[in-house]
Write a protein that binds this DNA or RNA. Structure first.
Length: 555
RNA sequence: GCGCCCGUAGCUCAGCGGAUCAGAGCGUUGGCCUCCGGCGCCAAAGGCCACAGGUUCGAAUCCUGUCGGGCGUACCA
């Protein structure tokens, strides 16, 4: 699949021409990055550039004069192609494109097909997205759901940028937490025999262990009267494997599949943890104090010297995690994205400090950090707490409103903002629901094509000349934004940019479709409009695909 | 106390490498069905962009401070 080339988007076409004009005028390229904006208001042309105002300030020139000079040069060079430029306001260069040039963008889109909005920035290098990574101690909550969808969508976006992407789930299947889990499960098991015991400090209180206990009894029988070594081993295995399987199913129902489940235990068994510490000591990033080994991270913003090995000799989570990241590098990943909750920011700074000390490239590891989720129902907001047993499982939520809607809501807010999940809106099947609204636009177009029959074939070669109304051209210019939105969403870990965009395209489509008749018009007009709507369908379909939502032909 | 994130329309939120953006969805009010799926469209009302200073010809956007909310600040993971 050929990558869609940057130069063919209209905005970049305009940028290039403006830069050329500036260079020819000033004898040097612009010194600053400037904005090209797509205008809603046709009075200001199709696109506006703020180049003159920025450069004038930097170089002590008069903005409007510089803008006029650039605009004149622009017209001199490109006027024969039907391009115009005007100066307005404090020094904007407003560019007007010919309908033919705008139509070119649609033609390129149709020819690129599903390759529209793909890039080759990653050049096929391997990129890993690690997410969820919840330890198998309980069911996934709605909070995990946000991370799951965010990670999955970032993986899809990274693939669009040209990386060879792998999704990985990191989990701990041994150690103290798992022992506590095993013991908690065993206590629930003993309750089935009428015994009453206290769940230990730091143990797991959740109801879900009662259900598992019953299943375990059916499978291992009635032995294990004491929590001895044999019981520990058995219950540890039962707890981890049953809960892991539950998690896997939960993710599956959301349409998420991992390429790799990575066990923390292997790092210990293979001596990788000790190696990591040795490596840190070699570069003087670790030191000893109070009988423990510490990481130097005070110099990093938000960082803090932290314990790597406790005074009793056990490594901390941080050291193991550092070993894990060394392992990622050794496995050949060029880049790694870790999706994490906002409660991990200090650890993230420490990790960055450690990897920097070990000589990793600064862009090797990127953190996609997200805030938490609260649920709103019937106007009331509830905060969830796993500890207090007050949470809604991801499974229940998906069962109630379906994976598509859950996915849309989870990525429609910027990750670093708190997400208030509006259950009533999510449950609504009608136009109120933005997810449904976008899918419906796709469906309407699919329906139109069913009706159009052969008229809708071979549209990549259609004559687009009839598309010259402001309505036609505005829609094409919106579709033209898709590649850059994909790029910004992927590079900035910001899927919400794409969901906003898709909603905007869907909204514009519905209005356009109301104002413009397609079938029944003269064949050349109908063909041209079908071509345009094919473009809309493609962009919406690709967007929904990136979100992991279905793009239905019928609803 | 310190660190990070967030304060924009009644509600949920975009915009934040400055100007030609005060925006969307929901909610409210009022219109549009001999018409390709009305699960649609159009319009109105509604905001001192938390507050106070500063930088700038120009600030929702950058800087400083204050006030609110969240999360951290473990030899937990």
């Amino acid at each position: 699949m050929a990558g869609y080339r940057l130069e063919t988007t209209l905005k970049d076409f305009v940028r290039e021409r403006v830069v050329e004009s500036y260079r020819s005028l000033r004898g040097a390229p612009p010194t600053l990055w400037f904005n090209i904006r797509l205008n809603d208001n046709p009075q200001f042309g199709d696109y506006s550039a703020n180049l003159a105002m920025l450069e004038a300030k930097a170089q002590g020139l008069v903005p409007r004069t510089l803008a006029q000079d650039i605009a004149d040069e622009f017209v001199r060079r490109a006027g024969s192609e039907g391009l115009r430029a005007e100066v307005a306001g404090p020094g904007f260069i407003n560019v007007f494109l010919s309908p033919e040039r705008v139509q070119d963008s649609l033609r390129a889109l149709l020819q690129a097909g599903e390759g529209y909005g793909t890039w080759e920035l990653g050049a096929g290098r391997r990129l890993q997205v690690e997410f969820v990574s919840s330890n198998p101690t309980g069911p996934l909550t709605v909070g995990h759901g946000r991370q799951a969808v965010l990670g999955d969508v970032l993986a899809s976006l990274s693939a669009r940028l040209g990386y060879a992407v792998e999704r990985e789930y990191y989990f701990n299947d041994e150690g103290r937490q798992v022992d506590l889990l095993a013991e908690s499960l065993w206590i629930r098991y003993r309750e089935l025999f009428g015994e009453t015991r206290e769940i230990p400090e730091g143990g797991y209180q959740g109801e879900y262990l009662k259900d598992i206990a019953a299943a375990v009894r059916a499978s291992v029988g009635d032995g294990f009267a004491e929590f001895d070594e044999s019981a520990r081993t058995t219950f540890r295995h039962e707890a981890v494997s049953r809960i892991s399987e539950g998690i896997r199913i939960d993710l599956e129902t959301l349409g998420i599949r991992f390429d790799q489940y990575f066990s923390e235990g292997t790092l210990h068994r293979d001596g990788k943890v000790a190696e990591a510490l040795a490596a840190l000591r070699r570069v003087d990033a670790a030191y000893d104090k109070d009988g423990a080994a510490w990481l130097r991270a005070e110099h990093v913003p938000g960082g803090k010297d932290s314990v790597l090995v406790r005074s009793d000799g056990r490594p901390t989570y941080l050291l193991v995690d550092i070993a894990y990241h060394i392992n990622k590098k050794e496995r050949g990943f060029a880049r790694v994205i870790d999706v994490q909750g906002a409660d991990h920011v200090v650890e993230q700074a420490c990790m960055k400090a450690a990897l920097a000390a070990l000589g990793f490239p600064p862009d090797f590891l990127g953190y996609a950090v997200h805030q938490f989720v609260s649920l709103k129902e019937k106007g009331e907001t509830q905060r969830m707490s796993t500890r207090a047993g007050r949470f809604i499982t991801l499974r229940d939520l998906v069962a109630e409103i379906g994976p598509d809607i859950v996915r849309y809501f989870m990525i429609s807010r910027k990750p670093e903002a708190h997400l208030e999940f509006d259950l009533d809106l999510a449950k609504s099947q009608s136009l109120d629901n933005p997810a449904t609204y976008i899918q419906y636009a796709h469906t309407r177009i699919a329906s139109l094509f069913r009706k159009a029959g052969a008229l809708g074939d071979g549209l990549a070669a259609a004559d687009l000349a009839p598309l010259r109304s402001p309505d036609d051209l505005a829609l094409i210019k919106k579709l033209d934004l898709f590649p850059e939105i994909v790029r910004a969403a992927g590079e900035g870990f910001a899927p919400h940019l794409l969901s906003e965009y898709a909603l905007d395209v869907a909204r514009f489509f519905h209005g356009y479709y109301d104002r413009n008749r397609v079938l029944g018009e003269a064949d050349d007009v109908a063909r041209a409009r079908l071509a345009l709507l094919r473009g809309v369908q493609l962009v919406l379909g690709q967007s929904l695909g990136i979100f992991g939502m279905s793009a239905p032909e019928e609803m």
